[in-house]
Structures are given as structure tokens and as C-alpha cells.
């Protein structure tokens, strides 16, 4: 109980919110990393998944990449990148590692969504004389949207987690509050940082949950 009240004191003291290592700045870094890397990974993964799904090729790659992503430790990739020449360029090792771990869920979900579109619907669209592009944008993407969005949601939560681990390898973000707490042997600060990280992750999950609930009926199928 003592630790909890000490953690609460740490969280509510104004001195811990301002400055370069303050909560406000760390929160901003975490949000910036998450949003930037989510955009980058969507730009990389979604076009590939949509094209592969439309053509019906590369299924083994799109599905297995998720399993591979799970087997490779995030921390190992972060440190490996840090020791390569990329490591000398500020935030880049963190950004690259974050994107690497956000791409698999995006790719797999979008691909599975595209292939899950009813084949009869696709044939009917073709029979109506739709071109490949029309078929993709007017039939397949709208019908695959629920799973594509599920992929974005999984990737976003994954990004928050990976950005936290990046603090172990010297990156920014809320994880730095935890690692600094460990270095100072200050359990209250460690717990306070962990509470902030957990709340941030749950908030991101909650935002996507709400967005999926508010979406029109046809876009909700994949939400569970």
C-alpha cells in the first residue's frame, strides 16, 4: 500500500511533469513515435497486402510473417540495430524496430481480409464488367475493411508496447520513466511509469474499440 501511495505522490508532483525527462515530454515522445510509426507501417504494409490479396499471391508469406514476428524478440532487434551504423542516427533504430514489428499484423490481417471476400461477390462484380481497380476499391477493400481495421488496432497496441521497450535501448517515450526508476532503485517511480504506460496502451485500445463500435454496421464485422 505504501508503494502505491508513493507512486501516486510521484505522479501528482508537479516537478515530475515538466522538463526534458518529465511526464509531459515523455508522453509526447511516446505519442509521436506511435503515430508516426503507425502511419509509416500502414504505408508500407497495406499496399502490399491489398495487391497480394487482390492477385491471390504470396499467401504463405503474408500469413507466416506474423509467426516470424512473434519469435523474434523486440529487445534483440532494438539492440542489434543500435549496434549497427544506423544506431548513431538518433531515433532511427527505434523507428525502424517499431515499424518492423507493426508491419506483420497489418499485412496478415489485411491479406486474410482480402482473401475472405466472398468469391461469388467477386465473380458477380467481374461479370458486371468492373475493371481490376474498380473491383479492388469498390468491392474488395470495403468488404475487407473490418479485418484491415483490426490489423491497424493490433499494430497500434503493438507499437505502444515496442516503444516502451525501446527505452531499454536508450530510446525515448514513457518507458524511460520506468528505466530511470530502475536506475534510481525507486520503486514508486517504476510503478508510476508502468501505470502511465498501461493506461496509454489501454487508451489506444479503447480509441480503436470505440471507433469500431461507431463505424457503420458493415464495417464492424471483424470487431470482437
Amino acid at each position: 500500500m505504501n508503494t502505491l501511495s508513493a507512486a501516486w505522490d510521484w505522479l501528482t508532483s508537479a516537478a515530475n511533469w515538466s522538463g526534458e525527462g518529465g511526464i509531459g515530454n515523455r508522453l509526447g515522445e511516446h505519442l509521436f513515435l506511435t503515430v508516426l510509426c503507425l502511419l509509416l507501417s500502414c504505408l508500407i504494409a497495406l499496399p502490399v497486402a491489398l495487391v497480394l490479396g487482390h492477385l491471390g499471391r504470396g499467401g504463405a508469406l503474408a500469413v507466416n510473417i506474423s509467426n516470424a514476428g512473434r519469435a523474434v524478440p523486440t529487445f534483440a532487434v532494438l539492440v542489434l540495430l543500435l549496434l549497427t551504423p544506423v544506431g548513431r542516427h538518433g531515433q532511427w533504430p527505434t523507428i525502424i524496430a517499431l515499424v518492423l514489428f507493426a508491419v506483420p499484423p497489418l499485412l496478415t490481417n489485411a491479406y486474410v481480409g482480402m482473401r475472405g471476400v466472398d468469391r461469388d461477390t467477386v465473380r458477380a462484380a467481374r461479370g458486371m464488367g468492373m475493371t481490376g481497380g474498380q473491383l479492388l476499391w469498390r468491392v474488395e477493400v470495403p468488404l475487407a475493411l473490418p479485418l484491415i481495421l483490426t490489423g491497424v488496432r493490433v499494430a497500434a497496441v503493438q507499437l505502444v508496447a515496442t516503444a516502451t521497450i525501446a527505452a531499454l535501448a536508450g530510446g525515448g517515450g514513457l518507458g524511460r520513466i520506468i528505466t530511470a526508476g530502475f536506475n534510481l532503485a525507486s520503486t514508486p517511480q517504476v510503478v508510476a511509469g508502468a501505470v502511465l504506460v498501461a493506461l496509454f496502451a489501454l487508451l489506444v485500445e479503447g480509441v480503436f474499440e470505440t471507433a469500431q463500435r461507431l463505424a457503420p454496421q458493415w464495417a464492424r464485422r471483424g470487431a470482437s
Partner: peptide, 13 residues
């Protein structure tokens, strides 16, 4: 949903 580093930290006390 709770990231691993935060989970370990929450269990520290």
C-alpha cells in the same frame, strides 16, 4: 494490452 515492460514493473512491489 499492457506492455511487457510495464507488466513487470507493476509486479515489482
Amino acid at each position: 494490452t499492457i506492455p511487457s515492460l510495464a507488466m513487470f514493473s507493476l509486479l515489482l512491489p
